[in-house]
Design a protein around this nucleic acid. Structure first.
Length: 572
RNA sequence: CGGAGCGUAGCGCAGCCUGGUAGCGCGCUUGGUUUGGGACCAAGAUGUCGGAGGUUCGAAUCCUCUCGCUCCGACCA
């Protein structure tokens, strides 16, 4: 491709509304343009990366035995009513009516459509196992789209759905997808982790998220420094071995703590570490139950763990009025002593004695508090957020480390939720009708490209790895008006095309500075500079974008050498 | 949906408080000089000042309504 015949509108300045690096660079490198909040056009240069990502996914999915199809964006409400999600999905589901006033939605995911197809076409266990996937544009009317392609409303996603006769088959399908995902992200040259994730309301038995490690990641994950364990903090379990409650040595004492509402303030006031305090949170469940939760002073509640424990959709911190009503004191002085509601404590609290708690009255706390003697806990459980340094729940000597990650893929076992709701059954070998056991597997295509940029950039621009780069080689003619330079550049360009290398020829009549700045910005992995200086000696200059290393190549060998480097980088 | 802010040339912004002929930098066009890290000179083009209504002799500027966008929070297969 010749630059002068291409559309590659680079921006010298960073657009004001781009917050994260990948968004800024994708805008500046002319890869995307915003059309509306969370909705982008893929410009030619950006589309090339997107297509490469799709192709890698396609190849690995096919290799894993999945079959590509393409489902409609417009979904009839009927199907969504059948699964119950027309009501449940909420405002994120973009709904509309056709000319006959029939309700439709734009598919944010396609369990309903695929299940409908399978129930109508798959009747026998002999047709199983089956794994269908598509790469398609989805729409979710996110409350708050942000970070460019990272969290758009309209986005390209690969989604796959597996169908099996039984759990065993479904587990095997899951395993194959897990491995395919590892292959995909490995091929993209990404540093990533597969982490255990909360399967949420879907209630599957297991679920993994694929996280690209990046500072700007929206998710916090932990991993063990000794074994393979890794999990989203939402999910990360904590295990206490042999907890014993120490004997009480202190007397229960009421102390005045004027205006000391936060754990920090109380700890400083009482001159103890926050870890010697027990904090009491008043929470409200989605079923409107109010209960008290005890945590060590320096810990955070993991609301998802608590919701799962209580088997409710979600839990929230209670509003001030509710706190006042249940404890008799404003927020900041809640304590377990004398409370009439259910008290749930984090397991860690079981190992504490002689601690301090709120007094359920303005400006009052208790010290020398002990379990059992002073109040009762109805249940101890793992409900706090994991932090770095916590012991690994899987091995004996590992400690947890924490990272930020961008969720680029999610695999999960669905079970029979949709097949039962939508009556998707097959006959087994005994002639008995059984609901299909399903799994679903997503990859955010645009998000993965964005994540790759987050992981591969410097102050001058992006440096996408070879498999995702829009072009493999940039041939930059320093001065197109110089006949010798022009001739040499054109010759190499032609040779590279003949060798099947994806090459962009910068044939613009611009000053070298502009060309080099643009080259760094758009980050094509290999840059060949053809300039008078080296050409006199019969050489051209190679610069590797990512490492910055430079070398001279004889003009005659340049094309072949570049091809070799491209192939090597693709097969790394 | 709660809080904050912004809409003025393709991009980045000033002007608004205190109403009076719409500006700057970059980019763009033409000509010339220049050519290894975002050059220089000269001449030019480009605006429903987000939209509607109001106040006023006169509104980018003041008032009301409205639409869009961004950030923080809540939310998130």
């Amino acid at each position: 491709m010749r630059y002068t015949q291409y559309l590659l509108p680079t921006l010298k300045e960073t657009p004001a509304d781009a917050e994260v690096i990948s968004h800024q660079l994708m805008m500046r490198a002319g890869m995307i343009r915003k059309v509306a909040a969370g909705i982008y056009s893929y410009m030619p240069f950006g589309l090339r990366s997107i297509r490469k990502m799709e192709q890698i996914i396609r190849e690995e999915m096919n290799k894993a035995g999945a079959i590509e199809c393409l489902l409609p964006m417009a979904n009839p409400a009927e199907l969504w009513q059948e699964s119950g999600r027309w009501e449940k999905y909420g405002k994120e589901l973009l709904r509309f009516k056709d000319r006959k006033e029939t309700d439709f939605c734009v598919g944010p995911t396609h369990e309903e459509v695929i299940t409908d197809i399978v129930r109508n076409t798959v009747k026998s266990y002999k047709q199983l196992p089956l794994n269908l996937y598509q790469i398609q544009t989805k729409f979710r009317d996110e409350i708050r789209p942000r970070f460019g392609l990272m969290r758009g409303r309209e986005f390209i996603m690969k989604d796959a759905y597996s169908f099996d006769l039984d759990d065993e088959g479904a587990d095997s399908a899951y395993g194959k997808m897990y491995q395919a995902y590892r292959n995909i992200f490995q091929r993209c040259g990404l540093k990533f982790r597969a982490v255990e994730a909360d399967s949420g309301a879907i209630g599957g038995s297991f679920s993994h998220e694929f996280m690209v490690l990046a500072e700007s990641g929206e998710d916090a994950i932990v991993s063990c420094d000794a074994c393979e364990y890794a999990a989203n903090v939402e999910k990360a379990e904590l295990i206490y071995r042999d907890i014993e409650t120490p004997a009480a040595t202190a007397e229960l004492q009421k102390v005045d703590t004027p205006e000391q509402k936060t754990i920090e303030a109380v700890a400083t006031f009482l001159n103890v570490e926050p870890s010697r305090l027990v904090k009491t949170l008043i929470v409200q469940t989605s079923d409107d139950e109010v209960l008290a939760v005890l945590l060590r002073g320096d810990r955070e509640l993991n609301e998802i763990k608590l919701a799962n424990l209580l088997e409710v959709d979600r839990v929230l911190l209670a509003e001030d009025a509710v706190v006042r009503q249940t404890t008799g004191a404003p927020t900041g002085f809640a304590g377990p002593i004398g409370l009439k509601i259910q008290v749930i404590a984090d397991s860690e609290v079981q190992g504490m004695a002689d601690f301090a708690v709120g007094g359920n009255a303005v400006d009052v706390h208790y010290t020398g508090v002990n379990l059992a003697r002073d109040f009762t806990v109805s249940r101890f459980a793992d409900i706090r957020q994991a932090v770095p340094g916590d012991p690994c729940p899987r091995c004996t000597d590992g400690k947890l480390e924490s990272w930020r990650g961008i969720e680029v893929g999610h695999v999960f076992k669905l079970g029979t939720k949709y097949s039962e709701a939508m009556n998707a059954t097959v006959l087994d070998a005994q002639g008995k009708s059984r609901p299909l056991v399903m799994g679903c597997y997503g990859i955010g295509v645009g998000r993965t490209v964005a994540a790759a940029i987050e992981q591969n950039h410097d102050e001058h621009g992006m440096a996408l790895p070879m498999p995702l780069a829009p072009f493999q080689v940039l041939v930059s003619m320093v001065n197109p008006k110089d006949a010798a330079i022009r001739e040499a550049s054109e010759s190499i360009y032609q040779q590279l095309l003949d060798l099947g290398v994806e090459v962009l020829l910068d044939d613009r009549d611009e000053r070298p500075g502009i060309k080099f700045k643009d080259a760094d910005l758009i980050g094509i992995p290999l840059r060949l500079t053809v300039g008078a200086r080296n050409l006199k000696e019969g050489n051209v200059e190679l610069k590797v974008r990512a490492s910055g290393e430079q070398s001279l190549l004889p003009l005659a060998d340049a094309a072949r050498e570049l091809q070799r480097l491209v192939v090597a980088a693709l097969n790394r």
